[in-house]
């Protein structure tokens, strides 16, 4: 029990520690709503990455795809194309980028690490090209778009301050539900797990593995695109590199989630736990005034430790 749910217990221990040490500011409704908002963008990218990682593949391009989607939307809004068309253009580009990844991996049989490493650079280059390297911000971004990332559903007031259920949290919850339904409750999800288990066996069992893989990469690209749009909305700006850092954290979150799975497979609810651990650590360690660089080391140690414990558990099983 402890071995199986060690990561979850670790999260509970982390929360308990921060609650004891910062009782006035950590375990409060505003702070938890703040944490959900802070992790929402990473969560969406990580949920989408889970879909690809279920098949045993990787998508290293999600970070630069997020940057690219944000840049395309911002450039379209700057050109007065309107918010709906800007969003549609960005998500179409994300889907096409994902499909290109899927084509490279499923049809040209390029190793996912190599294929998406190449497209990582490619998408990053496109993001720079869109605005000639500049950041798009200020009046170019419509108030409604920037307002969405800052807004939410009013829940009341605490200590005279308005408390909102952030819109970005709601978007992340929606993506979580869709991903969970897709992976756990559809035939397509089962086929993806079958590919992850043994691609050859899945193909011999009648699974159209190439098409299924292509679909997984499209989903990953679209998820990264949604994450990039959320980021652009939250910051009311688009910078050609602002989503790049999401990739490593998304993969770390998926790996943390894998430690909760008996079979050692990525599960989207496990990814949610992984994302929460990263978010809570960042928030709590900042509240404890721990040096930023120590925070980074500590977070890395915890990720490696959790994954190592999970790996040892499976070896013993």
């Amino acid at each position: 029990m402890i071995r199986r749910f060690g990561t979850l217990l670790g999260l509970i221990a982390i929360i308990a520690t921060f609650s004891v040490l910062r009782p006035d500011t950590f375990m409060t409704v505003p702070n938890w709503l703040n944490i959900t908002q802070q992790v929402s963008i990473l969560a969406v990218v990580a949920f989408a990455s889970t879909i690809v990682m279920v098949t045993g593949a990787f998508d290293l391009s999600v970070g630069t795809m997020a940057s690219l989607a944000g840049m395309i939307a911002a450039a379209a809004m700057q050109a007065d194309l309107g918010i709906p068309l800007a969003l549609a253009l960005a998500l179409t580009a994300a889907a096409v980028g994902g499909a290109f990844n899927g084509f490279l991996v499923a049809y040209l049989r390029i190793v996912p690490f190599v294929a998406t490493l190449g497209t990582l650079t490619m998408f990053g280059g496109f993001a720079l090209l869109v605005s000639d390297g500049s950041t798009i911000y200020g009046r170019a971004i419509p108030a409604a778009f920037g307002g969405f990332g800052r807004g939410g559903i009013p829940l009341g007031t605490i200590d005279g301050r308005a408390v909102l259920l952030p819109n970005l949290t709601l978007v992340a919850a929606g993506v979580l539900i869709v991903t969970w339904l897709l992976l756990e409750h559809t035939g397509y999800g089962r086929r993806l797990y079958a590919i992850g288990g043994n691609r050859v066996a899945a193909r011999l069992a009648g699974v159209r593995t190439r098409l299924a893989l292509l679909g997984a990469f499209v989903a990953s690209g679209v998820g990264a695109g949604i994450g990039g749009l959320m980021l652009a909305s939250r910051l009311a700006s688009a910078n050609p590199t602002q989503g790049d850092g999401l990739m490593l954290n998304a993969i770390a979150a998926v790996f943390l989630g894998v430690t909760l799975s008996q079979e050692g497979e990525p599960r989207v609810l496990g990814t949610l736990v992984g994302v929460t651990i990263l978010g809570v650590l960042a928030n709590g360690l900042t509240q404890l005034q721990i040096d930023t660089y120590v925070q980074q080391v500590l977070t890395g140690v915890i990720v490696v430790g959790a994954v190592a414990v999970g790996s040892l558990r499976r070896r013993e099983a």
């Binding site: 500011t25 409060t28 505003p30 702070n31 703040n34 908002q37 802070q38 963008i41 980021l231 939250r234 910051l235 700006s237 910078n239 590199t241 602002q242 850092g245 960042a282 928030n283 900042t286 509240q287 005034q289 040096d291 930023t292 660089y293 980074q296």
Partner: peptide
């Protein structure tokens, strides 16, 4: 004085500013 660096990450900067605001 607390010095907080987010290593080029503007989303993290946004998040950490929210954290210190909640700490008053």
């Amino acid at each position: 004085v607390d010095v907080i660096d987010t290593a080029g990450d503007l989303a993290a900067l946004d998040a950490r500013i929210q954290d210190v605001i909640l700490q008053d």
